[in-house]
Simulated scan of single mutants.
Amino acid sequence: MWFVSSGASGSRVRQASSRSTRAWSAKGTRGRRGVSVMARWCRLARRTTNETAASKVNSVHSKAAMVTTHPLPPLEQFRAFEAAARLGSFQAAARSIHLTPSAISHRIRALETFYGVALFVRGHRRVELTEAGQALQASVALAFLELQRGAAALRQARDPSILKVTAAPAFANAFLTRRIQAFESANPGLELQLEASATVVDLEASGADVAVRLSAGRPADVDAERILPLVAGPVCTPALATVLRREGWPGVTRLRLRLDPKGWDAWFARAGVDGAPGRELWCDSLNDAMQAALEGAGVALAPLALATPHLRTGRLEAPCAETVRSKLSYWLVSRHGEARTGKVARFRRWLKAELAEAEAPA
Rank of each mutant, 00 (worst) to 15 (best):
N173F: 04
N173K: 13
N173P: 04
A174G: 04
A174M: 01
A174N: 01
L176V: 04
T177K: 15
T177P: 06
T177M: 13
T177W: 04
T177L: 15
R178W: 02
R178C: 02
R178E: 11
R178L: 04
R178V: 03
R178Y: 01
R179H: 13
R179T: 07
R179G: 06
I180Q: 07
I180F: 04
I180W: 01
Q181N: 03
Q181K: 11
Q181A: 14
A182E: 15
A182T: 06
A182D: 15
F183W: 13
F183M: 10
E184Y: 12
E184F: 13
E184D: 06
A186I: 01
P188F: 15
P188S: 15
P188K: 14
G189N: 11
G189L: 08
L190F: 05
L190N: 02
E191W: 05
E191S: 11
E191Y: 05
L192D: 06
L192E: 02
Q193Y: 14
Q193F: 11
L194N: 11
E195V: 12
E195Y: 08
E195L: 14
A196L: 10
A196F: 10
S197Y: 02
S197L: 07
A198P: 03
T199H: 09
T199G: 00
T199I: 01
T199S: 04
T199L: 09
T199Q: 09
V201Q: 15
V201P: 01
D202R: 03
D202F: 00
D202C: 06
D202N: 13
D202L: 03
L203K: 10
L203Q: 08
L203M: 11
L203D: 11
L203A: 08
E204H: 14
A205Y: 06
A205G: 04
A205D: 10
A205T: 11
S206E: 09
S206A: 13
S206G: 13
S206F: 10
S206M: 10
G207M: 07
A208C: 13
A208Q: 09
A208N: 06
D209N: 12
D209K: 09
V210R: 04
V210G: 09
A211H: 01
A211T: 00
A211Q: 03
V212K: 00
V212T: 00
L214G: 06
S215V: 07
S215Y: 12
S215D: 15
S215G: 13
A216R: 13
A216W: 07
G217N: 07
G217R: 13
G217C: 05
G217K: 11
R218Q: 08
P219R: 10
P219C: 09
P219L: 10
A220K: 09
A220L: 15
V222P: 00
V222R: 08
V222D: 00
V222K: 02
D223K: 03
A224R: 12
A224W: 07
E225P: 04
E225A: 11
R226Y: 01
R226I: 12
R226W: 03
R226M: 15
R226T: 08
I227K: 08
I227Y: 09
L228T: 06
L228C: 09
P229M: 05
P229K: 05
L230D: 02
L230T: 02
L230A: 02
L230F: 08
V231M: 14
